[in-house]
Amino acid sequence: ENVVSAPMPGKVLRVLVRVGDRVRVGQGLLVLEAMKMENEIPSPRDGVVKRILVKEGEIVDTGQPKIELG
């Protein structure tokens, strides 16, 4: 899985990584606000952040790609 998608609709509060960052499985990639709760979205695997496809403040839909890992 190279693309991390939104598990639920919500607002991107914070992006916790930058392009080029090495990430580990379970590491937080971003914080999504859904139903007035903050949810940290974890990396599904070890890898390197290739692209960030969302911006802080953006509203995302379920299944929308957010971060691409290499």
Rank of each mutant, 00 (worst) to 15 (best):
A34I: 14
P7K: 13
I67K: 01
S5D: 06
E68T: 10
G63L: 07
E38Y: 10
E40Q: 10
V23D: 01
G26H: 06
R24P: 01
G57A: 04
T62D: 08
E68I: 15
L29K: 00
A34W: 15
E40T: 15
V49D: 02
L30N: 00
E38L: 12
S43E: 02
R22D: 09
M35H: 13
G70T: 13
Q64R: 07
I41L: 06
D46Y: 08
P42F: 12
G57V: 03
E40M: 14
G47W: 04
P65L: 09
R51V: 09
S5C: 15
R45H: 10
P9V: 09
D46W: 07
P9S: 12
I59T: 11
D61F: 14
I67W: 03
V19Y: 03
L16G: 00
P44L: 06
G26S: 05
V12L: 03
T62Y: 12
V54M: 02
V48M: 09
L53C: 10
L13P: 00
G20P: 01
E1L: 14
R45W: 14
I59A: 08
V3M: 14
E68D: 05
V25M: 13
R24M: 11
G20I: 03
I67H: 03
G28N: 09
L29T: 02
K66V: 15
E56H: 06
R24H: 12
K36M: 13
G26K: 04
A34P: 01
V60D: 02
V48G: 02
G20A: 05
G57H: 05
D21S: 07
R14Y: 08
K55M: 11
D46M: 07
K11L: 10
I52H: 02
D61Y: 15
E40W: 13
E58P: 02
V12F: 00
P7I: 10
M8I: 09
R45Y: 14
G10F: 06
V15E: 01
R18S: 12
L53T: 03
E68Q: 09
V4P: 04
V19M: 05
L16S: 03
L69H: 01
G47N: 01
V4W: 05
R18C: 12
V23H: 02
M37T: 12
R14T: 06
V25K: 15
R51S: 10
E40K: 08
I59C: 14
K11M: 10
L69M: 06
P65G: 10
L29F: 02
M8P: 04
A6V: 08
R14D: 03
P65R: 08
N2I: 14
K66A: 15
Q64I: 07
A6L: 07
V48L: 09
R14C: 10
V23S: 01
G70V: 14
